[in-house]
Computed example of a mutant assay.
Amino acid sequence: MIDRSTQRSVGYGQATAADIDAGLRKYMLGVYNYMSIALVITGLAAFGVSQSPELMYAIFGSPLKWVVMLAPLGMVFFLSARINSLQASTAQILFWVFSVLMGVSISSIFIAYEMGSIARVFFITAASFAGLSLVGYTTKKNLSAMGSFLIIGLFGLIIASIVNIFIGSSGLEFVISVLGVLIFAGLTAYDTQRIKLMYMESDHSEVAQKKSIMGALSLYLNFLNMFLFLLQLFGNRE
């Protein structure tokens, strides 16, 4: 026989679980919304800059290109290091600025590749990303070990990419692109699970928003890098 105190305890537990599920869905939706808006901003910025030959020359025909190429990386490090001391509204503005700078830095893809090819690779990336993120969200397996391995691989990929800037090997570029797709595909599943586990029902709205922004930043970088590597592999050049 179940007494009244047990009934109250069970009812409270069920309500709490339901509240957590609803809160988690809202939190994850916020992450994906931030990521999607950032991708739209990046795409518009990239396309807009690519339509101005004068602007393209001013940026990529001068030392300014190094500022444009390195500024997004600097902002990622800044956001990661200072997110706890920033207000959520400030972090959000910096995220949008980062999205614009990233768009400017990749604007040359609209000159190097056919528009139809870019669109096709984008939709392939979107479908792949959705599937991989769903795996990361639903799997019961702990992906931490895989994530650690992929992060080590990412550092190796960065080093290989820097080396290839100087040697210009097409064979190495192909290997880097293949490995890049695989690494960021795995990181998409891993980061989705990590972002999900970061959620806490007790978080203040300010903390929850900052977690959403940083989660969106991780998934944004995974999506964009996977798209760029797939474009190198399957894109039709102009």
Rank of each mutant, 00 (worst) to 15 (best):
G103S: 04
V104R: 06
V104E: 01
S105N: 06
I106N: 11
S107N: 13
S108W: 11
I111K: 12
A112R: 05
A112G: 01
A112T: 10
E114T: 08
I118R: 11
R120K: 09
V121H: 09
V121S: 11
V121Y: 11
S128M: 12
S128Y: 09
A130T: 05
G131Y: 13
G131F: 10
G131H: 08
S133W: 10
L134E: 12
G136Y: 07
Y137Q: 11
T138I: 08
T138M: 11
K140Q: 14
K141T: 10
S144W: 05
A145V: 14
G147K: 04
G147H: 01
S148K: 15
I151P: 00
I151Y: 15
G153E: 03
G153P: 09
L154Q: 13
L157F: 13
L157A: 08
I158N: 05
I158T: 11
I159V: 15
I159E: 10
A160H: 11
A160M: 10
I162D: 10
N164Q: 03
N164I: 01
I165F: 12
I165Q: 14
F166G: 06
I167P: 02
G168D: 00
G168I: 01
S169G: 01
S169F: 02
G171Y: 09
G171M: 06
L172S: 02
V175Y: 11
V175F: 08
I176E: 12
